[in-house]
C-alpha cells in the first residue's frame, strides 16, 4: 500500500508538472524589467496603479511588425510586456519597457504611451539603465523631450539638421538613435497588438 501511495503521488507530481508546462507560456529571455515603476508613474502620470500584461508575438504579427519597422526583430523577441496604468478604474495610459542596442551595451528605456487623435503617441520616454558615455545628455529633457507627442508614423531618424531628431551629444549618435528606435519599436508593437 505504501508503495502504491508513493507511486500515485509521483504520478500526480509528474502530471501536475506536465499540465503546468502545457498551460504555461514560455518566458522570453529578452524581456526588459521595469526598475522603478513607482517613481516613473508618479513622474509621468502623477499617481495611479499598474498591472503587468505579457503578450506573445505570433509569426503573422512578427511579420507585420518587422514590415513597419523596416528591420527584423531579434530571434528571442517573441514576447513583449506592457503595463496599463490606471487612476482609480480609468485607464490613463500604458507603459512599455525595452532594451535597445547602445554603443557599449543595452540601453533600457521606459516609454509611456497615451491615446492621441490618430493613434497612440508618446507621452514620455525615460532611460532607466545604460552604459553610455553621455549618460546625462541622453537622459536630458532636451533630448528625450523631442520624442514627446510622436506617433509610430513619424520619422525617428537622427539628423544633424532641422529635418529630424537631434542626437543628445556629439559622439552619442549611436546611443541616441538606439533610444529613438527602441521607442518607435514599442509604439509599433503596441499599435499592432491592437492598442490593448
Amino acid at each position: 500500500m505504501r508503495a502504491t501511495g508513493s507511486s500515485s503521488r509521483s504520478w500526480l507530481s509528474v502530471s501536475s508538472i506536465l499540465g503546468l508546462l502545457l498551460t504555461a507560456g514560455a518566458a522570453s529571455a529578452s524581456l526588459c524589467v521595469w526598475r522603478q515603476p513607482d517613481a516613473d508613474i508618479a513622474g509621468i502620470f502623477g499617481s495611479g496603479s499598474y498591472k503587468t500584461v505579457f503578450t506573445d508575438i505570433s509569426d503573422s504579427l512578427d511579420r507585420k511588425i518587422e514590415k513597419r519597422l523596416g528591420f527584423a526583430l531579434d530571434p528571442d523577441e517573441t514576447q513583449f510586456k506592457y503595463f496599463p496604468v490606471f487612476k482609480g478604474t480609468e485607464r490613463v495610459g500604458t507603459v512599455m519597457t525595452h532594451a535597445g542596442k547602445g554603443q557599449f551595451g543595452a540601453i533600457e528605456i521606459v516609454t509611456a504611451v497615451v491615446t492621441g487623435d490618430s493613434g497612440p503617441v508618446i507621452k514620455e520616454v525615460r532611460v532607466q539603465r545604460d552604459r553610455e558615455k553621455a549618460k546625462a545628455a541622453l537622459r536630458s529633457k532636451e533630448f528625450l523631450g523631442q520624442l514627446k507627442g510622436m506617433s509610430a508614423n513619424d520619422d525617428f531618424r537622427m539628423t544633424n539638421d532641422e529635418s529630424g531628431l537631434k542626437p543628445a551629444a556629439k559622439g552619442a549618435e549611436k546611443a541616441s538613435q538606439a533610444i529613438a528606435t527602441a521607442a518607435r519599436k514599442l509604439l509599433i508593437v503596441y499599435d499592432e497588438l491592437g492598442r490593448p
Binding site: S16, L21, T23, A24, G25, V53, F54
Partner: peptide
Amino acid sequence: FVAALAALTMAGTSLKVG
C-alpha cells in the same frame, strides 16, 4: 507550489516557464 501555480493559471493569470 506547482499545483497552486496551475490553479492560478486556470484562473486566467499569467504563468511563464523559463
